[in-house]
Design a protein around this nucleic acid. Structure first.
Lengths: 173, 173
DNA sequence: GGAAACATACCAAACGGTATGGCATGGTGG
DNA sequence: CCACCATGCCATACCGTTTGGTATGTTTCC
C-alpha cells in the first residue's frame, strides 16, 4: 500500500539517479512494485505529478537544508557535511538544475530554493557577527553549489581547506 | 553544405538549450536543415557522434577557458566575464554535468575538464605569488562553477563582490 | 581531350522497435 | 460501499538505422 508521499520520494530518487527525463509513470511503477492504476488514483496525470514533485523537492531541500544546519552547533560545518555526505543529495541538485533550464516551473522552484538558502546563510553569518553578510552568504553558497557539481567530488579534507580559506579572517566555525 | 564541425557545434547548442537527451539525429537534422542521410555520411552512428561531441566539448571549453584567460592582463577578471557573459556557456556546463552523472564517457570528460581548469588556475595564482595555490585554485573554481549554476544568475557586480571577498587579503586582480 | 569511374555531399522514404501517457474494467479488503 | 490496486489495451510518438537515389565535381586512363 503506497501513499502519495511514497510516489514523490521515489520520484526524487529517480531524479537523482537518472535525471528528469527518466521520471516516467512506468519507471515509478516498476520501482514501487505497483501499476499505473495506482498512480492515476493518487494523481490526476503526469503534469500534476511533476508539479507535486517540484513542490515536494522545494519543501524537503530548503526546509531540510536549514533544519540540518540549525540542529546543533557548528552550523556551517554541518552544511559542508550535507554536501559531501550522503549519497544522492548532490545528484539531486545536479538533476534539478538541469531540469530548471528547460522547464519554467522547475526554474521558478530552483529560484526560490536558492534565494531562501542564501537568505538563511546570510542571517547565519550575521548572527555570528560577520561582516558583509549578504556577500559572504553568496560566497559560501557558491562554494557549496560548486562542490556539489565538481567531478570528481572533493575529499572532505580538501573541501574543509577551501572553506577555511574562504572565511580566512574570521577563523573556524 | 555542412562540415563535420557544423554538426558538432550544433550538437553543443542543443546540449546547452535542451540537455543531453535532446541531442538526437532528428533534432540536429531539423536545426541544420539537413536530413539523416547527411548525418550518416559524416558519422558512423549515434555512439560515434556522442564520443566526437564530448571530444569537441573538451577541446573547446578547456582550451578556450585557458586561452581566453591568457589573452591579456587581468586574467581572473576575464574568467569571471566568461561565466556571466555570453549566453549559453553556462547552460552548456549545466547540461554536461547532468550528462556526466549518467554516462561514464561524459563523466570521464568532465573529470579531465575540471582537473585541467583547476591546474591552470593554480599556476595562475602561483604566478602572481599567491599563497596556497592548490587550495586557492579550488576555491576560485568552485565559485565559478557555482555562479554558473545559480538561479537566477548573479549580476556582474554581485559576482565581483563575491570574488573580491574571496581573494580579500590579496587585493584585486 | 574526352569518356569512364569514382568521390563527395546530400535527399527522401521507410522500417522496426520501443517507450509512453492514458484509460477502462474488474477485483479485493476493510 | 469505497479506497486502493491489478490487468490489459490503445494510440501515438520517437528514434536509430538502412536503402536507394540525385547532383556535382574530380580523378583516371586510353
Amino acid at each position: 500500500m503506497a501513499t502519495e508521499r511514497d510516489w514523490l520520494d521515489e520520484g526524487l530518487a529517480v531524479l537523482a539517479e537518472q535525471g528528469a527525463p527518466a521520471v516516467t509513470i512506468e519507471v515509478l511503477c516498476e520501482r514501487l512494485g505497483l501499476t499505473k492504476g495506482s498512480f492515476y488514483h493518487h494523481f490526476r496525470g503526469m503534469a500534476a505529478y511533476r508539479a507535486a514533485l517540484l513542490d515536494h523537492f522545494e519543501n524537503r531541500f530548503t526546509t531540510e537544508f536549514i533544519a540540518v544546519a540549525e540542529s546543533g552547533e557548528a552550523k556551517l560545518e554541518r552544511l559542508l557535511n550535507l554536501v559531501t555526505g550522503k549519497g544522492d543529495a548532490a545528484g539531486l541538485e545536479v538533476a534539478v538544475r538541469a531540469w530548471a533550464q528547460q522547464d519554467p516551473l522547475a526554474r521558478a522552484v530552483q529560484e526560490r530554493v536558492d534565494r531562501r538558502r542564501i537568505e538563511y546563510l546570510s542571517t547565519l553569518w550575521r548572527r555570528r557577527g560577520g561582516e558583509e553578510p549578504e556577500t559572504m552568504a553568496r560566497l559560501l553558497y557558491l562554494i557549496l553549489v560548486g562542490a556539489g557539481h565538481l567531478v570528481p567530488s572533493l575529499t572532505a579534507d580538501e573541501l574543509r581547506e577551501v572553506y577555511e580559506l574562504a572565511v580566512r579572517p574570521y577563523g573556524r566555525s
